[in-house]
Amino acid sequence: MIEILQYEFMRNALIAALLASIACGIIGVYVVVKRIVFISGGIAHAAFGGIGLGYFLGVNPVLGVIPFSIAAALIMGVISKRTKIPEDTAIGILWVMGMALGVIFVALSPGYAPELFGYLFGSILTVPTSDIILMLSLNAAIIAVVFSLHREFQAISFDEEYATTIGLPTERLYLLLLCLIALTVVLLIRVVGVILVIALLTIPAAMSRQFTHRLSSMMFLSVFLCAVFTICGLWLSYAFDLPSGATIVLVSGTAFILYIIPFSLVSLPSE
């Protein structure tokens, strides 16, 4: 495995995998324990609109994704908190509208969009150094926010209504958490693409919660698992010439299934 690191694209891929794992492990824990997998999927898919916007404006599509996914997160959050529209309905609608906007933007852009497939399903082998720098700064922002507000995030995840009664600004904290999810989606786009993001946001965190009842330990563990899955997936995709994003997702999913089987057998109802 060492000899493949002589290529710059492989070194960048490895660094990108590790950087994505950090954000993904931390934020994925909140996604799983607060049970906001669906809204996270909505943000990730709506982010495709930002990729289209990037093409349309002729800038790096990842730069289009940042404002677009944050806007999607805020709109979904506000609609689910403030209106009577059922939350899952609102998410479903914004989910497809974001993607549809992306398609329209790409169609309106001059020329052909050869890398589009990469943004949908990941293209970790083509991560430029500029993206690595972007990923570093997004990670720094996510870690700084979680480090200073982890008590508050824990409280709104455990019982949002109670958190309101003790005077926490729960709605603003929730919207901030959704924005962190949006930024994590941006980090993960290069690794697995917008369609497959949700796998890495849920699988490592869901596995790590079986081992500990501390959120911080869960985060360290899921960062580790996420790194193992992405690196294994990366190596397998290199060795067998398979699409990297899909391979990473299948490695994670297979690990989850293998790991969960003994638990499922034990918890069968015994007469």
Binding site: Q154, A155, F158, D159, A163, I166, L168, H213, R214
Partner: peptide
Amino acid sequence: YVPQYSLFDHEFPVSVWDVVLMGRLG
């Protein structure tokens, strides 16, 4: 406020100590 018993996720990864400290967050 002590809410109705059933209204929380019993699998939530949090210790008794951290639950009690939550009351100080405000």
